[in-house]
């Protein structure tokens, strides 16, 4: 399976990563090589096999809907402090809608 330059551009938009022309060329080559490598999976017959979706066999882990920790209690200043740009207690971003 090879991947085209156009596909690389499309993926970079979906992934929200701007790429330089040099990066585009590099990823076209490297991603194609990796996809060729994973192609080996097609040798495996998996018709009736159930997919394993996670690391455990747990289902629906429940807990009471109550505050269980003071982990972030009183930490709002630290959390707001890590905003790259802010106004008062709010993170400041460019307009979402034009």
């Amino acid at each position: 399976m090879t991947i085209t330059g156009k596909e690389v551009e499309h993926i970079s938009q979906l992934a929200r990563i701007e790429l330089t022309d040099a990066e585009k060329q590099k990823f076209e080559k490297e991603l194609s090589a990796i996809l060729e490598f994973v192609e080996k999976l097609n040798e495996v017959e998996t018709g009736e096999v159930e997919p394993t979706t996670g690391g455990t066999v747990l289902e629906n882990v429940m807990r009471p809907d109550e505050q269980t920790s003071q982990d972030l209690e009183g930490k709002s200043a630290e959390l707001i402090g890590s905003f790259p740009d802010k106004k008062g207690g709010w993170t400041k971003v460019k307009a979402v809608f034009d």
Binding site: T46, V49, E50, P51, T52
Partner: peptide
């Protein structure tokens, strides 16, 4: 890709 890999993971 993803679904196929998860089936192989089961195996």
């Amino acid at each position: 890709y993803y679904l196929k890999a998860q089936k192989v993971r089961h195996l």
